[in-house]
Design a protein around this nucleic acid. Structure first.
Lengths: 230, 230
DNA sequence: AACGCCATTTAACAATATTTAACAATTTTA
DNA sequence: TAAAATTGTTAAATATTGTTAAATGGCGTT
C-alpha cells in the first residue's frame, strides 16, 4: 500500500482528508499537524507522496518542502495553497514540487492529482523490470527486441507474436503464465479464436526449443503454461 | 518564442486568452475554434504546448488529445474542463495528458500551469531528440536536414519522404515505430494507400542500409517497424 | 506549352505472418 | 469408462508486408 504523508494544521480538515484518502484511496496516510512534526515523520520512514499545506503557523509548507527536498529530491509533493496566492504557487513550481492544489478544493480532485502523480513517478521506476529484452533459456539466447533465438551458432528468426509469447513465458519462467494474461497482453482480447491461435504459436515455439532437452513448455490444464528450465 | 496551440470553441474566451497569453506570456498563440481545425493546425507545425477545451461541439478535447498523442507522444497538453467533471479529468490523466484546469479559472493560474509544464518538458530528453538532425546508424551517418546518408566515404542522397521516415525510425531506434504514427507524422493521413506508399519507401531505405549487417529494420506485424542497431 | 527530371503514388505480384479449420491427443468430468 | 472439454498439431485460408515496375504529378528549363 502506498504511504502518504499529510501535513495540515487544521485538525478538522486534516482528519477528514486522512479518513477519505484511507477509505477511498486505499492509502496509508500519516497526518502531522505542523512542519516540524512533518519533517520528523518524513525522516523516520519513506513515503510515496507528500501533501503539504502551505499556510501553517509554525513552519509553512514551502519551507518544509525545501527541507525535505534536501533529503530527498524525487518524492512527489502536492502543495495545498489558498486561492489567489499566485506568488506562492510560483514558488511551488520553482521548488521542483510536482503539483499544487488550490484551497478550497474538491476532495476528488486531490485524489486525482495524487493518483496522477503516483502514476507518473511509478512508471519511471517500474518500467525497467519489464524492459528486459535479453533472456537465457537453457542453452538458448533469446533477444526479444531483435525477435531472434540462437543456440550454438545458429539463429532462428521469430515472428512478432512468437517473440511476444516467448517473452511472457520467460518473464514467468518456472511459474504459470495464464492463458488469459497472455491473450490479453498480446491479443488484447481473450476469445476462443485468439486462444486457438495462441495454441498454434505455442506449438511453433516448442519446435524452436526442441534442441535443448532441459527446456520445456508444459501445459497447466485449464490455466496456462509453464516454461521449465532445468 | 514558444508556440502554443489553443483550441477553444467560445470565440470570446478564445480571443481573450489568446491576447492575454501573447501579451503577458510572450507566447505565440494560434487559436482554433474546433477539434478538426486544431488537428489540422497541429500537423502543420510544431507547438510547444497545447491548451484544449474539453467541451466542444464537433469534437471534444479528449478525442482531439488522443488523436494528437498518436502523432506526438510528448507535447504537453492542458485540458480545460468544466467544474465537477471528475470522470473527464480521470480520462485526462489516463491519457497521459500533462495537466488540466477547471473552468472557470483565473487566467494567471493558467499562465502558471503553462510555465510549469513548459519548464518540466523543456529539458526533457525527448524534446531534444526531436530537434536532432544528425544520427549514427551503425556504420552510417544520417543527416536528416541535408537528406543524406553516408558510409565509409560514399554518400547517398535521400528524398524528403525517405529522410523523414528514416528520421522517425532513428528517433525510435530499437523500439516500435507505429505505422500509424509514421503515417500521421509524415503523410498526415493513415489510409491504405499512404500505407502502401510507405512500404515502398521502407523497401528503399532497407536497400540503402544493406551495407552494414548490424543495421536492420524489422517488421512488427500489425503494428509497425523497429530499427535495430547492434 | 512542351520537355525532361525526379519524387511519389499506384498497381501487380511475391513472400510472410496470422488466423481459421480440421482432426488427433490428452485431461477432466460425470 | 464414455462424454465433454481442453490442448496439440498440421494444413488451408486470409491478412499483412516486401519488392519491383509502371503511372502520376510537381517543378524548373527551354
Amino acid at each position: 500500500m502506498k504511504k502518504i504523508l499529510l501535513v495540515e494544521d487544521d485538525p478538522n480538515l486534516g482528519l477528514l482528508l486522512q479518513d477519505y484518502l484511507q477509505l477511498k484511496g486505499k492509502f496509508d496516510v500519516v497526518l502531522c499537524k505542523d512542519g516540524d512534526e512533518g519533517l520528523r515523520a518524513f525522516t523516520k520512514q519513506n513515503y510515496d507522496l507528500l501533501i503539504l499545506d502551505v499556510m501553517m503557523p509554525k513552519k509553512d509548507g514551502f519551507t518544509l518542502g525545501k527541507e525535505i527536498r534536501k533529503i530527498n529530491s524525487y518524492v512527489p509533493i502536492i502543495f495545498a495553497t489558498a486561492k489567489g496566492m499566485i506568488e506562492d504557487k510560483m514558488q511551488a513550481f520553482n521548488l521542483g514540487g510536482d503539483d499544487y492544489i488550490t484551497k478550497p478544493f474538491r476532495i476528488e480532485e486531490l485524489l486525482l492529482r495524487i493518483n496522477a502523480l503516483l502514476k507518473r513517478t511509478e512508471n519511471s521506476e517500474k518500467k525497467e523490470e519489464e524492459k528486459q529484452s535479453h533472456f537465457k533459456v537453457g542453452k538458448y539466447e533469446f533477444d526479444y527486441t531483435g525477435q531472434i533465438i540462437s543456440i550454438d551458432g545458429t539463429h532462428q528468426k521469430l515472428s512478432t507474436k512468437e517473440a511476444e509469447l516467448l517473452r511472457l513465458l520467460c518473464l514467468r519462467k518456472n511459474e504459470v503464465l495464464t492463458r488469459e494474461e497472455a491473450l490479453l497482453n498480446i491479443w488484447h482480447d481473450d476469445n476462443y479464436f485468439n486462444g486457438r491461435s495462441m495454441d498454434v504459436f505455442l506449438s511453433k515455439i516448442r519446435k524452436y526449443l526442441k534442441d535443448d532437452p532441459n527446456v520445456e513448455i508444459i501445459n497447466v490444464h485449464g490455466r496456462g503454461y509453464k516454461l521449465l528450465i532445468n
